[in-house]
Amino acid sequence: MTTSQKIKKTDLGKLLNQWSQEFTVLVPWRENGLATWAKWNGTDTSFIDWYRNTVVPAKAHFLPSQEEMFRFQKDEKGYHIELPDADEHKQLIFGIRPCDARALTIVSPIFEELYEDPYYLAKRNNTLLVGLACTRPCDSCFCTSLGINPAESIDVDLMVTDIGDQFLIEGISEAGKELIAGASEVKEATEADEAKAKEIKEASYQKVTRKVDTDNIKEKLSVCFEDEEHWEKVADNCISCGICTLLCPTCFCFDINDELVKKQGTRFRSWDSCAFSIYTKMPMENPREEKWRRVRQKVCHKFEFHPMSYDIIACVGCGRCIRQCPVNWDITQVLNNLPAKV
């Protein structure tokens, strides 16, 4: 008795087209050599062959790099605020990797618990995630050190694994199971199919060779927090750009800016980064003027402070911060070479 379904690879387009009737379907896309997300164009499934992961993570479809919050006008009676219409736009992200799906699970409580962020939550609640098992992790990936199997996910609605000329499909959430209910191309998987998927998952796990020692990481960071000389050394080749943070699937900082043209105003929010020297300059001064303090903050926030509040490390080992860094600054080396032994 099997619990999974399957679909021929050549039928994937049909399924995506079917979903497109209800959702805006996003799939991996390549533009100028850049792997990104784009609206499904109805035909091109070539990403199956080249796709490993996108440069900009799927978080951009929940917390966009820039977003209009509301408009306002000023007259003699004061300010009038015009809120945008409720966001009821339904989207489906096909091909999200287990690391990035976990990142959404880590980030969502921040927009939900202390304060409900309507912009983020509307998008999150109107989105279904179809995960695609990662069978070709990059040499910068270290997801397995963060408890993630690159080919398995419970953070998605539906999980898809490439088993040769077919995809194995596993329903994770009820909404995910509904996505394939009644689809004529979807068939019951055989035991052999499931065995093959299991084999692929185990093999994928083994392919991730970069490791981080996360044992007692909170404590280790806490002990060496004051070690200025150490952090200066760690930070010395950093150029303080925002790549590692802005492209990080678990970084969620944003800045708010008003644009006033005559008496018409628009309030925007956009990605911000603790790597920038002007971070938090608006409410006060940036307490982390020196570069090493900002680098320390980035590391400690993910591996010490966030776990203190949410009991989970705010890193999924997607490796973007290593892959995309212009100077090859490598967080795994930093974490594996902390001076404190606990």
């Binding site: 533009e31 850049l34 990104t36 900009v56 790099s65 150029i239 303080s240 750009c241 925002g242 790549i243 802005l246 492209l247 956009s270 990605w271 980064s273 920038f276 002007i278 300059k281 608006m282 212009p326």
Partner: peptide, 25 residues
């Protein structure tokens, strides 16, 4: 596609301003 990471500016030796015009409010 630009995400304003400012890597272009920060890797550039010619961009040596302590405070960039883009940061002025």
């Amino acid at each position: 596609r630009c995400i304003r990471c400012y890597a272009c500016r920060n890797v550039c030796p010619a961009c040596f301003c302590k405070r960039c015009f883009v940061e002025e409010s």
